[in-house]
Design a protein around this nucleic acid. Structure first.
Lengths: 205, 205
DNA sequence: TTGACGTGAGAACGGTCGTTCTCTAGGTTA
DNA sequence: TAACCTAGAGAACGACCGTTCTCACGTCAA
């Protein structure tokens, strides 16, 4: 049991190293322009082990998207959780987008990029992209309903966030986050008025 | 002169046929998964002529993006021009997005997809993408300023439109256009209040 | 010590694809 | 009719890359 545990740990370590390299290379240069040999060179994990861990490149790509999804949403939630006021928590999403956009090496949304690159040919990738976007939208929806705001706001805020990600990626600028935050404030104010004025919050969006 | 004209016309026709095939295939299946031989098969233009018209695949891709840009913006402007009221013209943009999203074969924004697929490796593609997005934003900006609204609205509406395109592409649904239109109405109303309340329209955004 | 096993380095294989080349046919002019 | 230009069909070339195979080495059990 002790021995197999050591071996398992070695495999788990190699897996993390492979995914670290995959994330950096796939995100930075696109999936198709990165070869398995590049992954090997960057990770130090031999080709043999690589194929032992991920039977084909597709699997590595999917694992990359899945691990990044967990990390991305974790970092977002961590930032949002620094705020207590429900509406501030919504705005914190856009604040965090701004921080993310300003990071060195930012190249847009990994899932939007992956969808553009592989969507037409890879159902596995498409599934991960839709799952990620759905999870992000659900998270936003929770923030909106926690704030007692009408859930019709969720879709609007989601579009602002998506637009900001795309635009920040293409223009290599963090500015869209601020514009989206401004727009979000306006939409929140209007939603607040609606909620007070008659429509019941939490209704169908 | 008569003979060279006939030849030129044949070349121009082949060029259009090649671009027709390229547009359908590149947009529908992505650029990298479409070979030059696929273009030949779909267009009926021989490989020899193809390379005579476009010295490399890159050039064909760039020409595809350029021609599509002209057509896309032309169709948008055509729809907007059916409206006279300045604010209706702005909303007509989102209305048209909804029509576009609902077209059979819609697969999202060709430029966002191309950026995701080729952005990291092809400066030529990146240039066309940024040029297209800039042109679209400029067009929106003109509509906003024609309506006497503060130009800070342009960026916000632009983000809504981009978010709608991405989301419609990924979810294969036209719904985001309606959500974006709703949000745009709220933002327009707020902008109108700002313009009336003190801020000078056409100011820096 | 020995033998089976797992591993890493890297060669090798097979398929794809961008690009060029060959070969043949047709059409035009002297 | 002969020379010449052009074009099309498709073979061929060369590079790339995902995947597998070879081979030599080190490790561990008996």
């Amino acid at each position: 049991m002790d021995r197999t545990t050591a071996r398992d740990q070695a495999l788990a370590l190699a897996r993390e190293q492979a995914l670290d390299a995959a994330e950096e290379l796939f995100y930075g240069r696109g999936v198709q322009s990165v070869g398995m040999d590049d992954i090997r060179g960057a990770s130090g994990v031999s080709l043999k082990r690589l194929y032992q861990l991920f039977p084909a490149k597709d699997r590595l790509v999917e694992a990359y998207l899945e691990r990044r999804d967990l990390r991305w949403r974790g970092r977002l939630a961590e930032h949002v959780d620094r705020h207590e006021q429900p509406e501030e928590r919504i705005l914190a999403v856009f604040e965090w987008l701004g921080l993310w956009f300003a990071e060195p090496g930012f190249r847009g949304c990994a899932w939007i990029n992956a969808y553009g690159e592989l969507g037409p040919t890879s159902p596995g990738v498409t599934d991960r992209v839709t799952a990620h976007k759905e999870a992000f939208r659900d998270y936003l929806d929770g923030l909106v309903s926690d704030a007692g705001l009408p859930s019709v706001l969720t879709g609007r805020l989601f579009l602002l966030a998506e637009g900001a990600m795309v635009t920040a990626g293409i223009t290599r600028s963090a500015e869209p986050a601020g514009q989206a935050a401004d727009a979000a404030r306006v939409l929140l104010a209007a939603g607040r008025r609606d909620a007070a004025g008659g429509a019941r919050p939490g209704g169908q969006g």
